[in-house]
Simulated assay, not measured.
Amino acid sequence: MRPGVAAPGVAPAAAQQGFSLVEVLVALAIVAVALAACMRATGQMTDTHARLRDRSLALVSAENALAELRLLRAYPPLGRASEPCPQGALELVCERIVEGTANRAFRQITVRVRMPADGPVLAELRSLASAWQ
């Protein structure tokens, strides 16, 4: 056969250019899966950022509670106390636990910060208080 002349029953090369419907559908399916994976990753990143923000604010609340005790320069009594300690728009509850140690001149103070209504503990700090402040 001569170049450029198609055999009988076969379309010329110029008529066969482009993509078939199946190829286009496969490409769309691949793009859809990739976009779904990106959306899931974005959602998880947003959730992680929100949890990290909440934990950071809870840590600030715990540090504030311990700093307040140091500024009072009082030897804290043994026991538990709970009080609200909001940070920004986040409602938090600070639980202060004062326990004795082997040395009676020191007391261990634990501050736990959690969400209201017995939510998860977001931050916990421990410190020692001395009777000789």
Rank of each mutant, 00 (worst) to 15 (best):
F19N: 06
L71H: 09
L25E: 03
G100V: 02
M115F: 14
L59Q: 12
L21M: 10
T101Q: 06
E83A: 14
Q133V: 03
R104K: 10
A41P: 00
A37K: 00
M45E: 12
A74R: 13
M115H: 15
R73E: 13
A36S: 14
A36G: 15
H49T: 13
V31W: 10
A27R: 02
S82W: 02
V113G: 05
D54S: 11
A131V: 12
H49D: 13
M1G: 14
C38S: 12
E23C: 01
S127N: 09
F19M: 14
A50D: 15
R126I: 04
G18Y: 01
V22E: 06
L66G: 04
P3S: 02
L90D: 04
R53T: 11
A67K: 08
A11T: 00
G43K: 05
M1S: 12
P12N: 00
E99G: 07
C85D: 01
L92P: 05
A129N: 06
R80H: 10
M45F: 08
R51F: 10
A123W: 03
I97P: 01
R126W: 04
Q44C: 06
D47E: 15
L128E: 04
L92N: 02
A81I: 04
C38M: 13
L69E: 12
G9F: 01
A34T: 10
G18R: 00
P8C: 05
V113M: 08
R51L: 15
Q44D: 13
W132I: 03
R53I: 09
V111W: 08
E91M: 11
I30F: 14
A74E: 14
A13P: 14
A11G: 06
L125K: 01
G18F: 00
L71E: 11
G79E: 05
P116H: 01
E124Q: 14
A58E: 05
A6S: 15
A13G: 05
P86M: 00
G4S: 01
A34G: 15
A102T: 13
T110I: 12
R112M: 09
G9A: 01
Y75N: 11
S127A: 15
L59H: 12
F106V: 09
